[in-house]
């Protein structure tokens, strides 16, 4: 990474990063797994592995990333799904057993699994 030598360079970098992120979200799916200590102790690592395994098995190309604690620790593991322009949907109390249905119905089928949803980020 070249060092930023001025505020201007920082601004330019920011704009290009924003463009990249926009391009990515518009054309693909991002799955976000809460990986703060609360998530980890609730089993988020196992859920993440299950998600990666499921994506591999179904040959789905999605961007999987991790974030820290969003605050709703009592509902961890939390898994967010963002598809294109759709609002980002958060699933709560996710277990490894729930992963395949979320991938199948939501990711592939486009239908949010209402009973497991915590909320939507507009």
């Amino acid at each position: 990474m070249p060092k930023l030598k001025s505020l201007e360079e920082l601004r330019t970098l920011r704009e290009s990063l924003q463009r990249d992120i926009k391009a990515r979200t518009e054309t693909s799916t991002t799955i976000t797994v809460g990986m703060g200590t609360c998530g980890i102790s609730a089993g988020a690592r196992e859920v993440m592995h299950a998600i990666l395994a499921e994506l591999e098995a179904r040959n789905i190309d999605a961007h999987v990333t991790t974030v820290g604690c969003i605050g709703m620790c009592s509902r961890e593991p939390l898994v967010d799904i963002q598809q294109g322009d759709e609002p980002r949907v958060t699933y709560g109390n996710v277990t490894t057993a729930m992963v395949s249905r979320i991938i199948e119905e939501h990711l592939i089928g486009g239908a949010v699994v209402d009973e497991w949803v915590v909320g939507r980020v507009p």
Binding site: L10, L13, R14, L17, Q18, I21, G34, G36, T65, T66, V67, G68, C69, I70, G71, L78, V121
Partner: peptide, 16 residues
């Protein structure tokens, strides 16, 4: 918190 990847400075820069 909970929205960006804490291990990515790029994400931090992207959100300002």
């Amino acid at each position: 918190c909970g929205l960006i990847n804490p291990q990515s400075i790029e994400e931090y820069i992207a959100v300002g």
